[in-house]
Design a protein around this nucleic acid. Structure first.
Length: 223
DNA sequence: TAGACGGCGCATCGCC
DNA sequence: GGCGATGCG
DNA sequence: GTCTA
């Protein structure tokens, strides 16, 4: 629609993708704040309504300092970022990125697994893993699956019915996240449980959360 | 130029 | 088992 | 990496 025209500028895309790869390496190495700094800069560039032709154009914008300016300038000048080539081609970084993409494996465990010589997800099947990571590995492919818009609607319908019948008729699930923004698919379903008409504070979030989880469980919706 | 950068529940681990 | 620290999302 | 006190 006219309010959120998809603005795709080739050079901005290159810059975003390049910075995102470097950011991912930091994240998988546990360097969280540097990772977040990259995310901030990336979000700023994503929001631009013009194509970057000179690094000066983004000087002073949120999250963009000298470091980012230099990187952007290099990408504009050479078409790529040497640092990005270096860090992403490193086998250890590749394994760290792969392992931390498994739900339940963070930078610390990923590093330990690499030190133990593991390099592929196939390798990990033979590794000693905590239950959460074992679960994440078992559902690795499924976890990457995107959920079609219509399917999210089905989930919400089920949930409304469940809330109304088994928990509290006043409890209304409100969808947020990508589905609320009308994305064609969603990675997950974010739901806010609200109680619009309630003037009571009697029920603590814990009481409700337990009721909700139990209802979902009894319905066979979650294990 | 040092320190902040979100806060929190749950699972696990090391120590007592 | 209790308890604080750490990892993770 | 960036920003602020």
């Amino acid at each position: 629609n006219s309010f959120c025209t998809l603005l795709a500028f080739a050079m901005n895309g290159t810059i975003i993708d390049t910075l995102a790869k470097v950011a991912e390496v930091y994240r998988s190495n546990g360097v969280v704040y540097r990772y977040k700094a990259y995310r901030t800069a990336i979000d700023t560039i994503k929001g631009l309504d013009f194509e970057i032709t000179s690094a000066d154009q983004v000087k002073g914008l949120k999250g963009i300092g000298k470091g980012m300016i230099d990187k952007i300038a290099e990408i504009l000048r050479t078409g790529a970022l040497q640092q990005e080539k270096d860090v992403t081609s490193d086998p250890v970084n590749q394994a760290l990125r792969l392992f931390t993409s498994v739900h339940g494996i963070g930078p610390v465990l990923a590093r330990q697994l690499v030190e133990q010589g593991y390099r592929t997800l196939e390798d990990l099947k033979a590794a000693h893993l905590p239950p959460a990571a074992r679960m994440g590995l078992a559902h690795y492919e499924d976890g990457k699956e995107r959920i079609p818009f219509a399917e999210v609607e089905d989930h919400l319908a089920h949930m409304r019915q469940l809330m109304h019948g088994a928990v509290d008729p006043a409890l209304i699930p409100v969808v947020c996240g990508s589905h609320r923004r009308l994305g064609p698919t969603s990675g997950d379903v974010d739901v806010l449980l609200t109680q619009p008409l309630s003037h009571s504070q009697a029920a603590s979030k814990y009481v409700y959360l337990r009721l909700v989880v139990k209802a979902l469980r009894d319905a066979g919706y979650v294990p």
